[in-house]
Every structure is written in structure tokens, then in C-alpha cells.
């Protein structure tokens, strides 16, 4: 057991898989010699060499296209798209190529690749380098979508993603890179499509993802300590496949549902979860499901303004408290 940052967990996860399987190659902009713009891939170039750890031109379409071609012929590429906002630059590969290859080829060409990308706000990068875009990928049939919130989950879910036969979009949160957590020694492999109950509770279910997970946990502590509300916090971890059973079971116990999303409000992933719960567990609910989101606006660069719009611990506390009428 050792304490590791989320950032170092990325490098450890990639190294674990590259050591295990010589078909794993890693490519992206500044990922090799520079160790990544977020320093999340330091040491990999030195450990695995220039054939397997490759700096690419600033060419997102060529990166993802080459990764897919390599995957179709048996390699297991991990491609980095530096900022998740740039997914828009190469969206053809995410939306039209990766997720349709198995389907349109009668299962002949598979696409076992992972796209790692830095997602989310908090770094004052402004409207084009701060977005949470996991919902852009969640809506496409044929993709898997993962977003870990802790170092141990980074390693375990990354390993699961690399070993998965389908294309996985792996969202790392930029504001979590410096956070730390306990990580066991040895190989770590998790399962995609499993949510985790991080804090059991009986009064309300709070569903969160990535950076919103530590905020939900802190909010739950305050709710319990100061307001006597015992909230259950569920880390979704994987939007596709989605662990609906864990979510529905939790709502069945607590009878109240809150989602905490960094997505702008329209078509955020929480809307889908609310819809599923309304469909399948309506009569378990004692009150309307509540979505806590970023408003439907572009993100500002100014620190004061950015902090105003992302869901905060305080906003979660106040929303839950008010909704529960205490």
C-alpha cells in the first residue's frame, strides 16, 4: 500500500498494461519525452522506448485514425487527446469510426483502443479547455465511457479499459491530477460498468462522477454533521456500461435522488439517470429527483466566475437540505 497521486496513477496504470502486453502502444501530443502536459505520463518513454511511447504531431484526427487502424490489425493503442474539448476536433473518429467498426463489419474488425483525455474545469483555462464532455460520448452507441475519481480507480479502470475489446473513452479530471489516495501494491484490474457506494446512507442518494465525487462526499459529511441528514454517495465511475442496478437499489433504500454533474445542464448525464429512475423506480421516490449541474453557459476563465458556476460542496448541501425540507 502506498499513497499515490491521481497523476502518478495514470502512468502506473499505463506501465502495468504495457509491461503485461507488448501489443499496447501509447501515443499522443507531448506524451513521451515531455511526460505529458499534465505530467501524467512521466517515465513511460524512458521505460518502454520510442517504438511504444510516441510523441505525435498536433493532429488529433491522425492520432485517433492511426490508433483505430492499429487496433483493427491487432494492436491495443492508448491514445491521448490532451484536452477533452479537442474531441470536437476529431469527433468523426469518436462518433462515426470507432463505434461502428464492429457493427458494420459483422464483427470482423474490432476496435480495442482507449482514448485518455483531460476533462473538466477548475484550472481557469476558459471555455475551450475546461469543458466536461463525457456526455458527448455517452450518447453514441458503440462506445464505452469511463471517468474515475480516485488514484486506485484510475489504475483499475484503465487496466480494464485496455483489456476491453471495445473502444473506451477514458476521462481523467484535470482538477484531480494532484489529489492523493491509497493504492495497493501489485496488479490492479477493475471492472467497467460498476458503480461504487463510497458512503452508505439512508436519507438520500447522491450520484456523482469524477471531480464531483469528492465534493459530494464532503457535502454528505456536512449534511450528516450539521443537519442530521444521512446521504448515500454513489460514484458512477462508468457511464457506459451504466450500473443501473446499484443506482436503483440505492434509490430503493433512500427514496430520494440527487445527481451532481459538471456538464452544462441540457443533456447532461444526470438527465439520463433521472430518466431511468423515473421509468423504473418512480414509486420508490418520495420526492422529485433533483439535478445539481453547471448552468447551460460556456465556462469563464475568471476564477471567481468559474467557481460560481460549477456545483460546489455548499450548493450540494443547500440543495439536498432544502429538498428534504429540513
Amino acid at each position: 500500500m502506498a499513497e499515490l497521486t491521481y497523476r502518478d496513477a495514470v502512468a502506473r496504470g499505463i506501465a502495468q498494461e504495457m509491461t503485461r502486453d507488448p501489443d499496447v502502444v501509447f501515443l499522443g501530443e507531448d506524451v513521451a519525452k515531455a511526460g505529458g502536459v499534465f505530467k501524467a505520463t512521466v517515465g513511460l518513454y524512458e521505460q518502454f522506448g520510442p517504438l511504444r511511447v510516441r510523441d505525435t504531431p498536433i493532429s488529433e484526427q491522425a492520432i485517433l485514425g492511426a490508433a483505430m487502424g492499429a487496433a483493427m490489425t491487432g494492436l491495443k493503442p492508448i491514445a491521448e487527446i490532451m484536452f477533452s474539448d479537442f474531441i470536437a476536433v476529431c469527433f468523426d473518429y469518436i462518433a462515426n469510426e470507432f463505434p461502428k467498426s464492429r457493427y458494420m463489419s459483422n464483427g470482423q474488425t474490432k476496435c480495442p483502443l482507449v482514448v485518455r483525455t483531460g476533462n473538466g474545469a477548475g484550472s481557469r483555462f476558459g471555455a475551450q479547455h475546461s469543458q466536461s464532455v463525457e456526455n458527448w460520448c455517452m450518447m453514441i452507441p458503440g462506445l464505452k465511457v469511463v471517468a474515475p475519481s480516485s488514484p486506485v480507480d484510475v489504475i483499475g479502470l484503465l487496466a480494464a479499459a485496455v483489456r476491453d475489446p471495445d473502444p473506451v473513452i477514458f476521462f481523467e479530471h484535470k482538477s484531480l491530477y494532484a489529489t492523493k489516495g491509497e493504492v495497493p501494491d501489485g496488479e490492479i484490474v477493475d471492472r467497467l460498468g460498476t458503480a461504487k457506494i463510497l458512503r452508505p446512507g439512508k436519507d438520500a442518494t447522491i450520484i456523482a462522477l469524477a471531480l464531483m465525487v469528492p465534493r459530494a462526499l464532503e457535502a454528505a459529511d456536512i449534511l450528516h454533521r450539521e443537519h442530521g441528514i444521512d446521504a448515500e454517495v454513489v460514484d458512477v465511475r462508468s457511464l457506459v456500461p451504466l450500473d443501473t442496478q446499484t443506482i436503483l437499489n440505492s434509490v430503493g433504500r433512500t427514496h430520494r435522488l440527487f445527481t451532481v454533474e459538471e456538464n452544462p445542464r441540457l443533456c447532461g448525464w444526470g438527465a439520463e439517470i433521472v430518466s431511468i429512475v423515473a421509468d423504473e423506480a418512480f414509486y420508490d421516490l418520495d420526492g422529485p429527483p433533483v439535478r445539481i449541474t453547471t448552468p447551460h453557459i460556456p465556462l469563464p476563465a475568471n476564477d471567481f466566475l468559474e467557481d460560481m458556476v460549477l456545483p460546489t460542496v455548499n450548493r450540494i448541501v443547500e440543495t439536498v437540505k432544502r429538498s428534504l425540507g429540513s
Binding site: 483505430m68 490489425t73 469510426e97
Partner: peptide, 16 residues
């Protein structure tokens, strides 16, 4: 045009 980068990736495997 999408196949142009995919073909580049197929060639990547040959080289690898």
C-alpha cells in the same frame, strides 16, 4: 477521407 488516417494506422501495425 476518414479512411486515409485509418489506412495510416494499418500501416503503423506493419511497421510495429
Amino acid at each position: 477521407g476518414a479512411q486515409v488516417s485509418l489506412g495510416t494506422g494499418l500501416a503503423f501495425t506493419n511497421k510495429y
